[in-house]
Amino acid sequence: MPFVRKEDLKDMELPSLIDIIFLLLIFFLVTYSFSEMGEETGPARSIFDLPEALGESPVLEEEVLRTLLFQIEHKDSKDIHSPKVVYALWPSLSDSITLSQALVKAREDSSLHAEFPDGFLQLPDEEFQSTPPCTLIANSIARYKARYFHNVSVTNTIEIRAAKDTEFRIIDFIMDCCAAYQDTIPRIVFHTLATQGD
């Protein structure tokens, strides 16, 4: 009669069990995080640039502001139905001002921000162009160009940092303003606010 030692059957390999549980836990945590990222940001998540452009690092809040940047976002970042506001963020030549510092300044200074009126999409072109935010954009570009872009250079850029749901009409207006100085402002750099509402 074959004998089986009871001890062999009862001996639970606890470290191995924990090992497997941790493996499963890590697997689910990692895959869950990745799928959430994919949903949130869509396929356009990578950092890229124009083919001819030099490699540039992604802009972070603490990066030094080097050119005029228009930030367009909801007045209330938690409410996607709140009106859009444009902030004109000016760099400083004398001292290094970061994007977040410039944003604080623009929020405090009423001459550096303006709110798009309700139903601006329905406004005729001329009326839309005379709204306070459009006037702010056009004046800022004209002043910035006069002050800093004396020569034609590929490095002359105006930057736009906008929430993903920003209507193309606003972007188109900024592009049109830059198009007036097409030779001196050959390109516009976009930063899509990926963390809107986070």
């Binding site: 940001t41 640039d49 198009a179 899509t192």
Partner: peptide, 19 residues
């Protein structure tokens, strides 16, 4: 790395349209 990644922003240069 996952916690850091969403803070990065897309950066894209577009030629200024001609009039």
């Amino acid at each position: 790395f996952i916690v850091r990644e969403p803070r990065e922003e897309m950066r894209l240069a577009v030629p200024t349209p001609e009039n």
